[in-house]
């Protein structure tokens, strides 16, 4: 049973108020992948948002840059008990990508190159809470960390920040994505320790 663990144990009682309960501060950036790393070059990369009316909003790499990137400094929290503080990110705010999207649905299924999925309420992607990130710590995102682009939703556990993201589909209900079908919490708020079902 040793190969399947619940991550390293959290150090409870930390004095750093930026650490949610059960989290330990790390300085490296652990990699967690559920399959082979997709090799997606920027030339064939695209990102789509599809609504219930089957309207698809699409951006290629160049069009994404024109939407407007911004710098973000934020903490990230992995459900496996590590947190990385004050990370410098660069990405496009999801607010801008949703500006012209008309939908009455409240939930989103995020889809990645390689087949990974994760679900989110739309309200967790808006109001300055989420980005389509292309750089971290001053460098373009490497493939192992989700490059060329990954979702960044830092107020939720990091499995929600899907690597190699390629699109979003609006959903009428909060259907579970990959980890959410396999024992992990539907929303994943680290401050509430929403780790498992």
């Amino acid at each position: 049973m040793g190969v399947i663990n619940g991550g390293f144990g959290g150090r409870h009682g930390s004095s750093d108020p930026r650490l949610p309960p059960g989290q330990t501060h790390v300085y490296d950036w652990p990699v967690l992948s559920t399959g082979p790393t997709p090799n997606v070059d920027e030339g064939r990369w695209s990102f789509t948002i599809t609504t219930e009316d089957e309207v698809t909003h699409r951006w290629n790499w160049g069009e994404l840059q024109e939407v407007g990137v911004e710098d973000v400094v934020t903490d990230i929290h992995c459900v496996t008990h590590w947190s990385k503080l004050d990370m410098a990110w660069r990405g496009v705010p999801m607010d801008r990508l949703f500006e012209d999207v008309e939908t009455s649905y409240d939930y989103v299924m995020v889809r990645s190159y390689g087949g990974y999925t994760t679900n989110l309420p739309l309200e967790d992607l808006l109001d300055g809470q989420a980005w389509l990130a292309t750089e971290a710590e001053g460098e373009p995102l490497t493939p192992e960390h989700g490059g060329p682009a990954r979702l960044l939703v830092p107020h939720l556990y990091f499995w929600k920040s899907a690597k190699w993201v390629r699109g979003m589909e609006m959903m009428p209900s909060d259907d579970p994505g990959f980890w959410e079908q396999n024992g992990y919490h539907l929303r994943g708020d680290p401050w509430r320790e929403e780790r498992y079902w």
Partner: peptide, 20 residues
């Protein structure tokens, strides 16, 4: 650290997941 993912060696589809 989240769990083990078993994939088909032929088509890479997910066969199973084990989460502790």
């Amino acid at each position: 650290a989240m769990g083990a993912v078993m994939r088909c060696g032929h088509c890479q589809a997910v066969l199973g997941v084990i989460v502790r």
